[in-house]
Nucleic acid binder design. Structure first.
Lengths: 349, 349
DNA sequence: GGGATTTATGGTAGCGCTACCATTTCGATG
DNA sequence: CATCGAAATGGTAGCGCTACCATAAATCCC
């Protein structure tokens, strides 16, 4: 009947690409309207009359048209993509935040481009550059510390940026997170209040994860105000149950074992708790154990785990919501949010 | 000096968009070459002389040029993006696979677009359509069961597609996964071999997760060959430690309690194990417990958890590698891979 | 009822890049 | 030194869509 697009193929010169794909122009021809009208019918339906819209919808259906978002993105300088840059995908914390982000974005018709930096700020800077190449609608990245170029570029870029995990007053655009120092201080006070005096902080991957370091610093500094000294037990590797086991063993082998260990996360604390159980060490009588995260698992351990919980999924939801609000032209307030924390007081301390 | 691109601004008509961004043409002008040469210098450096390439690299540096990947994608009909479509981001299994995929893709300079279907095949079909709009280089999706339109569209699309999690011979293009029935049969044989006779299979979310159902079917069918009958304890909600707890309580409250429970994953099994411990129920003497996944945690429980382990991260790595190989023009063999499983024999059975 | 608005549609010109082909340059060769 | 082929570079024309402006049609007001 009619040949594939653009009239009668001027012989030699073939079309740029085979393609074969149905384009917006095909739909326009089928519906007997101009391409721009199809574009409007799809993007701003209320600006097209019901009659025409119906014809266009039918044509879309008939031809099985799927919009080329890349072309749209190029023309309108914005794809519905939100890059999310996190340090690692093997750490539960980030996963849960990412989950919250993803759910929220997807519900609003945005897609998440997920990238990880492996805790390397140079890699982060490079990734930011790369993902900006996708003309995203906004960007979500982790922490408030970045290479200077990152902040500069994102600021002049001018689109919404949300920094997650950390709370502070020097964000690029918007932020949702927690104050690590406050977390550490809170736990120090709590343990002191419960009567513990020889405190140990056990963490992993602290060389790279400066937020874990902040918790330790808060913990240490607050103990100092009680004239107590805290020791640090640090493991270079990533958190795992095994590291928790080792930490407990190491702590108990000390000439003067602590009477409480605060772990930098629940994974370590769980490993320690299970090891204590295996060895018949009484928790919390002989040694108290606390964690940070608020994992469901802690509730079912014996004894159950006292931990500081942060609403991670909620943090992701809020980060995405702020960003979406901004894209909708709203001006969310406040721009820097402290998601806060909650003590889950259970049996281990 | 010279005005921003395209001659002398015909007054009234301003540029399409403010922009302000450095483009490839800017670099070309700075380096005194044609735009296409810059494009080549960046994409196929070996096709440009050293002298010119050096000039271009310098210009890129000077101007702080960042390629617009959207424009490139439109022109070349392919962005370096790989959509990964999984049922859920709150299920550990998928997270780990995604992690393997992400690492592998990122190393090769591809970005991962992550989307979740919430186990809804219609949503999956819709998502596939959407992500194809990004002109991705390939697609990774979960399972071998899809709406017919999905297979059709992806096949005629003609680019690499990898299906993960499930092993079978009816994949769209390539697949890496495990055979759920085989898993179930294996565990049935194992438990029978250990002398257990009254078997219960406990699972969650099986209505939607057909792969869990396959494991149950394999388990049940294999027991049937031993003239044994298996019972099914099914929970509609997603897996959680609490569901494991409830399952154990329910099993023990049965008029004729089972002597072994095989859980459809380690989360449930862990909840059950911890509950058994709390109640003083002897495992495996009074009741045996087994899981599926091979989580690290299982090693540290008391007793430790016997489980069927699947190399999930490895599965992701392999899926991504196959896809990348195909993009490099290779023809990976075999096209359907069974990643297999391994029994981790520990104390709970 | 005539001009002022609003609403619905269309024409044109890019978005920034790369495919394709043409041209130039250059060293190798007889 | 003329001839050739390969390598390096450039010109042109889109990729498929939407911003911008113009026009046409419908609605309004006094």
């Amino acid at each position: 009947m009619d040949d594939r697009s653009s009239g009668n193929e001027p012989r030699g010169r073939k079309r740029h690409r085979a393609g074969g794909r149905v384009t917006l122009s095909d739909v326009a021809r089928e519906a007997g309207v101009a391409p721009i009208t199809v574009s409007r019918a799809l993007n701003t339906p209320q600006r097209v009359s019901d009659r025409v819209r119906a014809r266009i919808d039918a044509a879309v259906e008939t031809l099985g048209y799927v919009p080329n978002l890349i072309a749209g993105g190029l023309a309108s300088a914005g794809t519905r993509v939100i890059p999310v840059i996190v340090p690692s995908l093997s750490i539960l914390t980030f996963i849960e935040v990412v989950h919250g982000i993803q759910q929220t974005l997807e519900r609003a018709g945005y897609q998440m481009l997920l990238a990880s930096t492996d805790f390397d700020l140079d890699r982060e800077a490079q990734l930011v550059n790369t993902v900006l190449g996708y003309s995203p609608s906004g960007v979500i990245l982790t922490g408030l510390r970045h290479r200077p170029a990152v902040g500069e570029r994102l600021r002049e870029w001018g689109r919404p940026v949300v920094e997650i995990m950390e709370h502070g007053d020097n964000c690029i655009d918007m932020s949702v997170g927690v104050d690590g120092h406050a977390l550490g201080r809170f736990m120090a006070d709590y343990l002191v209040g419960r009567g513990y005096r020889r405190m140990l902080f056990a963490g992993s991957n602290m060389e790279r994860d400066y937020r874990a370091r902040q918790r330790w610093e808060g913990f240490r500094d607050q103990l100092a105000t009680h004239a107590l000294k805290a020791d640090l037990l640090e493991y270079a590797e990533a958190a795992s149950y095994r590291v928790g086991v080792e930490a407990l063993d190491a702590a108990l082998a000390l000439p003067e074992p602590p009477d409480a260990i605060h772990f930098s996360n629940d994974i370590l604390a769980t490993g320690a708790l299970l090891e204590a159980q295996r060895r018949g060490v009484k928790v919390p009588q002989q040694i108290a154990i606390t964690g940070y995260l608020g994992l469901e698992l802690g509730e079912f351990l014996n004894p159950s785990l006292t931990t500081l919980s942060v609403a991670r999924t909620q943090m992701g939801v809020e980060a995405a919501s702020m960003l979406l609000a901004r894209l909708d032209g709203e001006q969310p307030e406040p721009v820097q949010r402290d998601i806060g924390y909650a003590l889950i007081e259970r049996g281990s301390a």
